[in-house]
Structure formats: C-alpha cells, structure tokens
Simulated assay, not measured.
Amino acid sequence: MRSNPTGRQLRLGAELRKLRERAGLTSTEAGQLLGIKQNQVSNMEAGRMGVSPERLRLLACHYECADKALIDALAHMTSDRTRGWWEQYRELLPGSLLDLAELEHHAEALSDSTTAWIPGQLQIHDYAREIFRQAVTELAPPDIEHRLSFRIKRQTVLYRDNSVPYRAVIHEAALRMAVGGSAVMRRQLRHLLDMSERDDVTLRAITFEVGAYPGSGQSIYYVRGPVPQLDTVYLDQSHGLAFLDAEAQLHKYRNLFARLSAITLSPAKTRDLIHSIMQDL
C-alpha cells in the first residue's frame, strides 16, 4: 500500500474512477465484478494500490469502455514503474514539482505561455537563479540552489534522444525585462535564439501592440499525454501550483492555445524581435 502516491499514480486512479462512474457502477459493485473488496477498489482509485495491466483491462471490459487508445495508455501507466531522477529531490522540494517533472518525462508534447518571464524550460542558470531569489516567499540560499538544479535537470526532456516537442508563446514584456541585469539578459536572449533553431522547439512572441489577449496575466503550461483524455494543464500561481485535468478545463486551454496562434509573431519574426531587443541592451 502506498502512503504517498505520485501525481501519475493519482491520475491513473482518477481515470479508473471516471470509467467506473461513467459505467454507472458503485465501488462495491465494481469490487463484486472483480471478486475483491470495495476498499480495494477505493484504494486503486486513490492511487494507494497498484493495478496490473491485466486487471485494468478487465476493469475496462466490465465498465464497457470501448476506447482502445485510452485503455492502452492506461495499461502502459500501470506497467511503467520508472523512478526518475526527480526522486532524489523528494525530501528537498514540494511534491508538486516532482509530479511536474514526471509529467514532462512522459509527455508527448509541451506548450508554454508566459507573460512576465522566460519559460522555465528555456531559462539559463543565472536567469533562473534571479527568478528564485525574487520569489514571493523568500527562499534560503540552499533552497534556491536545489530549485535551480531541479529546473535545469527538467530541461533534459528537450535534449534527450527522443526529445519532447516544445512550443512557447512569450510576451514581449518577458523578453524586455532585464532579469539579473543586461549581461544576464543578453545571454538569456542568445540562448532563446539558439533553442529556436532546434527542429523540436518553436518560439513565438506576442508584442505589446496586441494589447489584452487570451490567458494574459498568467503562466500556462499544457502537457499533452498519449491520448487527449490524459492531457494536463499546469498553472504556476503565487499561492501555489495547480494541475487541471477535467475535460472542460482541458478543452478550455486547448482553445486558448489555438487562439494564441492567431495573434503571435511567426518564429522568424520572433527571432527578429529578439535580435532587436538584444541590440537595445
């Protein structure tokens, strides 16, 4: 029995609960179909108990779920027992950050939208350190270094052999805000230009002239799963981190990123803008 299930384990359990509820069954009735106790079904749905791929497929059969792609994706989640690099930070950082790294590790694609700062996946060391130094809740120097090393390690999903496709929408304000001073910002912008040359990275800017736009004022991170039902939206807010996965929420943020595409600069014009800003520093 798990005392502290990971975000991925919690998500698997939540998806099992959704399937059962759509089938109109109680946890007691589901247990009877499987020949197990009701509390075992509840523990599986709470992520406290593991589920074998065979049992998951049996559950899907009893729940009359005909979505083969979803079933296959959930079965893969049950068989994957990866303990990634993020586990070494288990006692050092909030569990929600570890859950984010696990999400990114398994993601099919990543989409970012930021207004006030460069997205974490694209930050250089000195830029990221300054962001952590100015956090709403003041961090002790050791905590800053833990978060800094964690952020940089998260970026490995963009460099590994099977790199995750990544696209970022960055407001001009973030490109012009000299975080850490002109020298740091110049290196940060150079890093953006270098990353924009990668085949699996797409950068698009929103200029001041656009004015208010969908999602302005918040940082939005969309993590695409193997099937749309397993997508996740991550919101980084001053009062804490939030993970959203309800169908209506996912639909809302998919539409938001689609609307952003209509008002952003092209990748080529985004690079031109970054070059122009660098010359002003």
Rank of each mutant, 00 (worst) to 15 (best):
R147C: 11
L122A: 06
I152Y: 01
A168T: 09
D112W: 15
I118E: 00
H146L: 07
L122T: 01
L148S: 06
A168M: 07
T156H: 13
R129F: 09
P141Q: 09
L193R: 05
V164S: 06
I144W: 08
P165M: 02
S149A: 13
E197A: 15
G181S: 06
T137S: 13
M195R: 07
M177T: 12
A135F: 12
R151E: 03
A183M: 03
Q188A: 13
V136N: 05
V184C: 14
M195E: 12
L192G: 02
L139P: 04
T115N: 09
L193V: 08
L122H: 04
L110R: 04
A135E: 12
T114V: 09
D112F: 15
R154H: 05
H125M: 10
L189F: 09
R186V: 10
R190H: 11
L175N: 03
G180A: 10
Y159A: 15
T114C: 07
L193Q: 10
R151H: 11
L148C: 07
D112L: 12
R187T: 08
R154W: 07
S113T: 09
R160D: 06
V179C: 05
A183L: 03
V136R: 12
Y159C: 12
M185E: 03
A116Q: 10
E197L: 12
L192N: 02
I152K: 09
D143S: 10
P142L: 08
H191M: 12
I131V: 11
S182H: 09
S111H: 11
E145T: 08
R147K: 12
H125A: 14
V157R: 01
D126W: 01
R133T: 10
R190V: 04
Y159E: 15
